[in-house]
């Protein structure tokens, strides 16, 4: 199972095994990792599942579609490596992925 490390804003690391086919957001919610609210449950409608993808992984996580990019452009403190974690599907390619959470989602 791919390992994903979620790092809270305060630096707390949560290494988790997340099944292929789930999203990076679901991996956090299912393991009670704090810092990802996911109010809309993955519908790409709320922008409360915002993460910063470790720059080394950007090639493998792909790029946001138009809806996601628009949502992100209005989220708090976005960076060039910002993504909505409900839009990143976990694949075996993502084994080792590191994502960091912003200070807040609201």
């Amino acid at each position: 199972m791919p390992k994903i490390t979620y790092i809270e804003h305060d630096g707390t690391e949560h290494p988790m095994e997340v099944p292929v086919g789930l999203t990076v957001m679901q991996g956090a919610v299912d393991n009670s990792v704090p810092g990802i609210d996911a109010d809309c449950g993955g519908a790409c409608a709320c922008a409360t599942c915002h993460v910063y993808v470790d720059p080394e992984w950007l090639g493998k996580t792909g790029t946001p579609n138009e809806q996601e990019a628009s949502m992100l452009s209005f989220a708090a403190v976005t960076e060039s490596n910002s993504r909505l974690s409900c839009q990143i599907e976990v694949t075996s390619e993502l084994d080792g992925l590191i994502v960091r959470m912003p200070e807040g989602q609201h």
Binding site: A47, E66, Q67, S70, M71, S73, F74, A75
Partner: peptide, 12 residues
């Protein structure tokens, strides 16, 4: 409708 920027900005 398929207009996320309008939604997000509108909310603010």
């Amino acid at each position: 409708v398929n207009a996320a920027s309008e939604f997000m900005a509108g909310k603010m």
